[in-house]
Computed example of a mutant assay.
Amino acid sequence: MTTRYAALLRGINVGGHKKLPMAELRGLLTDLGHADASTYLQSGNAVFSTDSGDERTLCSALERAIEKRFGFTVDCLVREGAYLRAVADACPFPADRLEGRQLHVTYFSEPVGPERLESLDAAAFLPEEFRLGDRALYLYAPDGLGRSKLAEALGKPSLFKGIVATSRNWNTVAKLVELTGQ
């Protein structure tokens, strides 16, 4: 059975570092045996179809292929389209009434328990808020991510040590759901 996936690459094409042209990423996915590869934006969002593998195996193969072809390591997550739809549907904030820049999802490589965030005084960041989901964190930042003190606090490496995390704004979340056919 063919399944549609999204690959979420972390930290590419930012500030001139880890340059990875999207045409080459599409080619790499095709070389790995995946079909219907396409990309969205220049920030490491790709979708593809395959009838073999699971998220972890597909991710490992992609990371190895990127390192071999481009000479640098890139953390990535591969998520099934149905999972992306479930994350979007479970959003605890009124996504339909917010601008895409106000709402973000950070996807994690594994589940994150609330104990990791106990050191944060959530009330100190209001009206900004976050909620945990299934291998995801939803962030409401009414003034956008660039001005978000809560995003800055959540970005501390110590909070999610040992976990791959990559964030997308709500416009990208919705587009990836659409591109995976969900």
Rank of each mutant, 00 (worst) to 15 (best):
L25Y: 14
L25W: 07
R26M: 11
G27R: 08
G27M: 05
G27W: 01
L28I: 08
L29Q: 07
L29E: 07
L29S: 07
D31P: 12
D31R: 12
D31V: 09
L32M: 07
L32E: 06
L32V: 06
L32N: 04
G33F: 07
G33K: 10
G33N: 14
H34W: 08
H34T: 02
H34L: 01
D36H: 12
A37T: 02
A37R: 02
A37V: 13
A37H: 05
A37E: 03
A37G: 07
A37L: 05
S38Y: 11
S38G: 14
S38H: 14
T39L: 11
T39D: 06
T39W: 10
T39Q: 06
Y40T: 02
Y40K: 04
L41H: 07
L41Q: 11
Q42C: 13
S43G: 10
G44V: 12
G44C: 06
G44I: 10
N45A: 12
A46Q: 10
V47S: 10
F48R: 03
F48D: 01
F48M: 08
F48N: 07
S49T: 15
S49K: 11
S49M: 10
T50G: 05
D51F: 14
S52L: 14
D54T: 04
E55L: 09
E55S: 11
E55Q: 04
R56Y: 13
T57L: 08
T57H: 03
L58S: 03
L58E: 07
L58D: 07
C59P: 00
C59R: 15
S60C: 13
S60V: 15
L62R: 04
L62G: 04
L62N: 02
L62F: 09
E63D: 04
E63I: 11
R64C: 12
R64D: 11
A65R: 15
I66N: 05
I66P: 05
E67L: 15
E67I: 10
K68Y: 12
K68R: 15
R69Q: 15
F70N: 06
F70W: 08
G71F: 08
G71P: 06
G71W: 12
D75W: 01
C76D: 00
C76K: 06
R79G: 00
R79L: 08
E80Y: 02
G81A: 03
A82H: 06
Y83Q: 01
Y83I: 02
L84E: 03
L84M: 06
L84Q: 00
A86I: 00
A86W: 00
A86Q: 10
A88Y: 13
A88G: 03
A88R: 15
A88S: 14
D89S: 10
A90R: 05
A90P: 00
P92C: 02
F93R: 01
F93H: 01
F93D: 04
F93M: 04
F93E: 03
P94V: 08
P94Y: 05
P94G: 08
P94F: 09
A95L: 09
A95P: 01
D96V: 09
D96K: 07
D96L: 09
D96N: 12
R97P: 00
R97M: 14
G100W: 13
G100A: 09
G100I: 09
G100F: 04
G100R: 09
R101H: 14
R101A: 14
R101P: 02
Q102N: 00
Q102E: 11
L103R: 05
H104W: 04
V105C: 05
V105A: 00
V105K: 06
